[in-house]
Amino acid sequence: MDRFIEGLPKVELHMHLEGSLEPELMFRLAERNGVTLPYPDIETLRQAYDFHNLQSFLDLYYQGAQVLLTEQDFYDLAWAYLERCAEDNVRHTEIFFDPQTHTSRGVPFKTVIQGISRALKDGEQKLKISSYLILCVLRHLSEAEAIKTLEEALAYKEHFIGVGLDSSEVGNPPANFAGFFDLARQQGLKLVAHAGEEGPADYIWQALDLLQVSRIDHGVNCTEDPKLVQRLADSRVPLTVCPLSNLKLKVVDEMEQHNLLKLLHSGLCVTVNSDDPAYFGGYMTQNFKAIAEALNPDCEEIRQLSLNAVEASFLPDSAKRELVQEILRYQG
């Protein structure tokens, strides 16, 4: 099974670029930019990756982002992730980035977007990995701040394909951002939102009905509501599930408890993704291997998860057809 997973063509739809900042790169950028980290060495930093919930992770996540200051920093971050994609046979990726994490520190939006976009262009040319950017806004901040961020970003609209909603979920329902998503929809942008990770199934309903998203990021708590599960199955609205993240953040206590295969067997368009791989201990291949070990799927179920990701992607139909055929031909 490991060999089958390693060679399987993959598509990733839920990965926060800032969450791919490995400790080694964090220290390298800190030294380059004269930033002092509150950890004496890489090993001490890794030991801090012991999270008890989403917020404990976010505190470290935002702290780590402090080392990202220049266009070259954002290029290096994106390029390092793309190299991992190449190792894991990821053919297409749709990447989240959090501009407010950087603009709030005085880093210009232009610096962020140009550094990332330059790396993604090189990734397509040199690594043959296609990619789209999705601008995420932070739900623990106000909708007014989100709208301000989008208005600034529209000058660089050619560099991103959609918008998303992330950060601290509990107590920050999707309904708070209905106006922001209306504005993004008017701009012709794709719409996704984190819902149902730590938040209740009702947050998924809100994301579907009030925000009118085409994808739910996480969504594992949909099983609280059988009617919602049926709706997701009937509509094929995708869930971008992140197994190792769910384990690391205590969404599940053990991987054997994960409902990924249950959702797959219920007819939902579930996909496998890495979320914040530098912090949660695994990129795409590791996530597939973790569910293979714990849930014992067969090769066709693993293949279906990859096919679902193609279906759920924002790729044009012609590119989807090519990837589907490649995945179907793959024998391992």
Rank of each mutant, 00 (worst) to 15 (best):
F180S: 04
Y203F: 08
L154P: 04
T240R: 01
W205K: 02
G164I: 01
Q230T: 13
C242R: 05
I204T: 06
E198S: 14
D225H: 02
S167C: 10
L183A: 09
N172T: 12
E158K: 10
V229W: 01
V252L: 10
Y132A: 14
L135R: 02
P173V: 15
P226I: 00
A195P: 03
Q257A: 12
V252D: 07
E197D: 04
G219P: 14
D253S: 14
G219C: 11
K126I: 14
L183W: 08
L189Q: 11
D182K: 13
K248E: 08
V237H: 01
L127K: 12
K128A: 13
K227Q: 13
W205I: 00
S214V: 08
L210C: 03
C222V: 03
W205H: 07
L244P: 00
A144D: 13
L165S: 09
Q187G: 07
L244I: 08
A195F: 04
E198M: 07
S167P: 06
C136I: 01
D253M: 07
E151N: 09
K250P: 13
P200Q: 15
L183Y: 06
V213S: 00
G162W: 06
H258N: 14
E143C: 10
D182N: 09
I204R: 00
N246W: 11
A193P: 15
L150T: 02
V163T: 08
L165H: 08
K248W: 03
G164D: 12
D234E: 13
G179A: 13
V229T: 11
L189I: 14
E256P: 00
E198Y: 08
I161C: 10
E151D: 10
V237N: 01
S142A: 09
D166H: 08
L210K: 14
D202K: 08
F180Q: 03
Q187E: 13
G164W: 05
E198P: 04
Q186S: 12
N172S: 08
F181C: 07
P173F: 04
E152Q: 15
K148M: 10
A207T: 00
L208I: 15
F180E: 02
E197Y: 04
L228A: 05
G162Y: 06
V170R: 15
E151T: 02
R236P: 14
K190H: 15
P173T: 15
A146W: 08
